[in-house]
Design a protein around this nucleic acid. Structure first.
Lengths: 332, 332
DNA sequence: ATGAAAGCGCTAACAC
DNA sequence: GTGTTAGCGCTTTCAT
């Protein structure tokens, strides 16, 4: 394994100074076209690749970002085990990787871990962070805002904070579900809501209620679950006992919808219409009608916002809301 | 945001030289106990954290590793969407992160991506790699072996290669399933095998057949799937038509087992015993009896092997095989 | 056992 | 425009 070529080597081959090569590499405009091509040639010839450690040390960008995941109680394992967050994280990894910005993935659920993730950036390993958290009350965003580190959130922060984020129009998604159920002729519609401490869950409930109200249904029965299949199943049983004549249910996520499906099957009510939310793998497996999020686009936008903020840290926080869509399958 | 403390600062506070502080940090033995404690005190006081970019530049380890994931056709998103590989990756992330060795996660499915992942290490971003691949014929291990980079594989390489790996005793796991079914009194046992190009799938089939043979069943009917739920469902339908009197089925992974469960339910054969493999989330949801892998332990061992190899690159490849266990739930 | 000093590869003033 | 030069924070000989 022969020594990997350095800037110096390229400079020698091209017959210029290190500085000029550096300029070419960093796309600084003030380089004579003739020299520029000469240098590019030398780069190709030597197979030069910038050493990121040196770059980071010398004070510019590290050329990497941190992907911080943080779950309710948990380990990274649990996060990646979640059918939805696994996709978000995977999407970011795929997108950033393709951009040549390899993400350092860390789980940050303790104060110590949060400090570590900030340290990663402070000490030249990365230039900014993408934050993917499941909890509304997560201290994570605050930590990054306080540290003055470029960061982008997946989902809006619980407390207004000067930080960029990408989110879904959850209320609109829930309205899509309501409209579809009503259009199908459902008369007695109920809903299984998510945990009250998750903003997205609140929004979905609010949006659903408002849309149903617009259709003349001022009251819809609600049962709460915690986004797991089991909780969806028991919520459904509860609803079946309190509203025996129900004919449709909207669950705030797919897992709970699948649980509801099971409860309905077990109680001989397979006729009830069911709509989930997320369009995750379980939804596909269960042939569940659901609300889909444009995850790829959202991941791409997060990368874009973050890179822009790293390039110009003075620019203020931005946010971008994406529109969900209805995916009609067998259950509604 | 005040300047982050450097070695120099610590040295000043402790009243020693940079070199001494460096020695304390790197656990070099030749430091007087008195000075050592003095320095440690200064480190705590200043809140010093080593700058990894500088460390990497100065020629020692980067203090980071690359976690390379590679799927059949795919993007990182698909990998993390797989209930099993998501867990493996998550486990590694959790374990390495806790060790203060943040993993850079990349997807490497193209030649370009593979070269990039090698470049990450070559250019001082990381010291070694953990390779998690789903395909037996993946060129990934070869690339790292050729590059002479410390690496550890999850699952043994298809072709014998001088590389460390951690794997499961798949045959023993399948035998566990066979034994359990026979003990339960099943008479007509069939199996849904995985793709023939996946070593683990081959091993599970071999192990299952051998164990059944030991129990006096020389022939077991086999249908192949591709590890998806749908493929499991159609394989089950196929088996039901060719072996109408079957009373038990062993599927090479949980997803196919869940598909089989569905086929059995739909054809009015809920009496048939079903065992899966992996103990993934779908297994828990479906209350599926299955074979579990000690994933946490495996992830920990991979980290250990990799770090040992990084510390002493001259040491030869090691491998470690873990024992699976039977998790009895409702289906068998 | 400890300190002084020379880089690691790069960027960014600063001269020319 | 281009080259020169001084570090970035750390490890590591080499003296002492």
């Amino acid at each position: 394994m022969t020594r990997t070529p350095t800037l110096e080597d390229v400079a020698t081959v091209a017959g210029v100074s290190r500085a000029t090569v550096s300029r070419v590499i960093n796309d600084v405009a003030t380089v004579a076209p003739a020299l520029r091509t000469k240098v590019q040639h030398a780069i190709k010839k030597t197979g030069y690749r910038p050493n990121s450690a040196a770059r980071a040390l010398a004070g510019s960008r590290a050329g990497a970002v941190v992907l911080v995941v943080s779950g309710s109680d948990g380990t990274a394992e649990e996060i990646f085990d979640d059918p939805f967050f696994g996709r978000v994280a995977g999407g970011m990894i795929a997108h950033l990787g393709a951009l040549g910005i390899p993400p350092i993935v860390v789980a940050a659920d303790s104060d110590r871990a949060r400090a570590d993730s900030v340290a990663l950036i402070r000490h030249g390993r990365a230039d900014g962070a993408v934050l993917v958290s499941t909890r509304a009350d997560d201290p994570l965003p605050g930590v990054f805002v306080d540290a003055g580190i470029p960061a982008v959130l997946f989902a809006r922060p619980a407390l207004p904070a000067p930080i960029s984020y990408v989110d879904l129009a959850h209320e609109a998604g829930a309205a899509l579900a309501a409209d579809h159920l009503v259009t199908r002729g459902c008369q007695r519609v109920v809903t299984i809501a998510g945990p009250t401490d998750v903003l997205a869950a609140q929004d979905r409930l609010t949006g659903f209620r408002q849309a149903m109200a617009r259709h003349g249904h001022a009251h819809v029965a609600v049962a709460h679950g915690n986004f797991t299949q089991d909780s969806g199943e028991s919520a459904m049983h509860h609803l079946l006992s309190t509203v025996p004549d129900l004919d449709a249910v909207f669950a705030a996520n797919d897992l709970m919808a699948v649980g509801a499906l099971r409860a309905l099957r077990d109680t001989g009510r397979p006729d009830v219409a069911v709509i989930g939310f997320d369009n995750s793998k379980p939804a596909i497996n269960a042939d569940l009608t659901t609300i889909a999020q444009p995850l790829e686009d959202m991941a791409a936008e997060m990368s874009r916002l973050l890179l822009a903020q790293i390039a110009d840290p003075t620019q203020g926080p931005q946010c971008r809301i994406f529109e969900p869509s209805l995916v009609i399958r067998a259950t509604a």
